[in-house]
Amino acid sequence: MPHTAERYTNTAILLHWLVAILIISAFCLGVTMTNIPGLTPTKLKYFSWHKWIGVTVLALACLRLLWRLTHKAPPHPASMSDTHVKLVSLMHALLYILIFAIPVSGYFYSLAAGVPVVYLGLFPLPVLIDPNPELKPVLKLVHYCLNVTLLAAFILHVLGALKHHFIDQDGIFKRMMPGK
């Protein structure tokens, strides 16, 4: 469906949902892998997949931000108050910050742990810091706290979208949905 004043572009919609699906996958994989006791081949495989998803999210987030900066978002409905619009803008800013910060924190946590990131097992990412046993737990905590924050923001984002769709019925939900 073409971009209109009431809808995001198809590219923006695709990037939104692709990033969302990858983040949900990475989150679920992260919870699963950290609950596997010991160091097993399965756990190592899940860690690799988790990192690959994180790198992909970061790359897509860069594309998404570039697209967003060059393509205007549809206007908010006139029924939304200025306060509501400001809160929505703050939430979107927080989501963008987290979409960048989480993969970066995971990348540095991996490097501090002495485990380089090799995207898809083929492309080694630059090693920007040496292994650092003192920094490792700090970065692990940062990565964890950012993910918990993202989970809370994600829940609020979904609840807000559902409120707009079922209660306000103002079309906000539909402007980011694929198709008609």
Rank of each mutant, 00 (worst) to 15 (best):
M1D: 12
H3A: 15
A5G: 13
E6N: 14
Y8W: 10
T9R: 09
T9Q: 06
T11D: 11
L14C: 07
L18F: 08
L18W: 09
I23Y: 07
S25I: 02
G30N: 06
M33D: 04
I36H: 12
G38E: 02
T42L: 15
K43W: 05
H50I: 01
K51T: 03
K51V: 01
W52Y: 10
G54S: 06
G54R: 00
L58E: 06
A59P: 02
L60I: 06
L60Y: 04
C62D: 00
T70C: 00
H71L: 00
A73F: 09
A78C: 00
T83S: 14
K86R: 15
V88F: 03
S89Q: 14
L90C: 14
A93H: 11
L98Y: 08
I102R: 07
I102Q: 07
P103T: 05
V104E: 03
G106F: 03
S110I: 05
A112K: 01
A113C: 08
P116D: 12
Y119I: 03
G121R: 08
F123N: 09
E134C: 00
P137T: 11
V138K: 15
K140C: 05
K140L: 14
T149I: 08
T149C: 12
L151R: 01
A152P: 09
A153I: 07
A153M: 08
I155V: 15
I155T: 11
H164Y: 08
F166V: 13
D168I: 00
Q169K: 15
D170A: 10
K174W: 06
K174I: 05
R175D: 02
M176Y: 04
M177K: 05
P178D: 10
G179I: 05
